[in-house]
Design a binder for these strands. Structure first.
Lengths: 98, 98
DNA sequence: TCAATTAGTCAAAAAAAGATGACTACTAAA
DNA sequence: TTTAGTAGTCATCTTTTTTTGACTAATTGA
């Protein structure tokens, strides 16, 4: 990553969601908030480091929001931001396509 | 590249159009047939090798069609396949988005 | 005939992305 | 107090991607 996509939103999406695990993370996040270790177990073949990097970048790019849940066994949750949610229809359109 | 995207069309698109120059090539191809050296001049910072690989892969993935034009100064043209054209509405939706 | 344009290929090097294993720090249960 | 689960980081290694520069081969114009 790292680089500005000269004002083209399509290019922006393609770049921010390219990366080995990002599409899968994003797709799982579509159905609700996600957590680190759960993700690590869900996505087989993945690893801590790569997921950590992917989650950090998705957060930096404003697609995910990281929240610390201060209840009972204190944990961290990632959920789609408004911007992230705005991509849902695009994904749906793509599903229909091919 | 090289790898099957387990049945998710969104992932398929993200993988086939990921690669440093592919989104730009594809976007330029939206407005008409493209040619190798023209592209090389249009996309600054790019290089022959990378463009050649990108074009070959886009062709292999069935998004572009390569045609030899047998007229006058004999040249080669790439244009969107039907599958490539089917992505136009998705791109348009993305443009509106952000 | 020499130079330029077309559309590339090839081998090698450099850069970026991804994976591995060890380690941290906190909490909670046995 | 040892073990397990939470959520990571760090340094290093490996793999993949991208870039560089040299070269090919055909055609066209001066």
């Amino acid at each position: 990553m790292e680089e500005i996509t000269n004002g083209c939103p399509a290019e922006w999406l393609l770049k921010t969601l390219s990366g080995k695990w990002k599409p899968q993370i994003f797709r799982i996040a579509l159905s609700g908030p996600i957590r680190f270790n759960t993700l690590l177990r869900q996505i087989e073949g993945s690893n801590k480091q790569s997921l950590a990097v992917a989650l950090r970048e998705l957060e930096e790019q404003g697609l995910l929001i990281k929240t610390t849940i201060n209840l009972k066994p204190l944990h961290i949750e990632y959920h789609l931001s408004e911007r992230g949610q705005s991509l849902i229809p695009v994904f749906q359109q793509l599903e229909q396509l091919s």
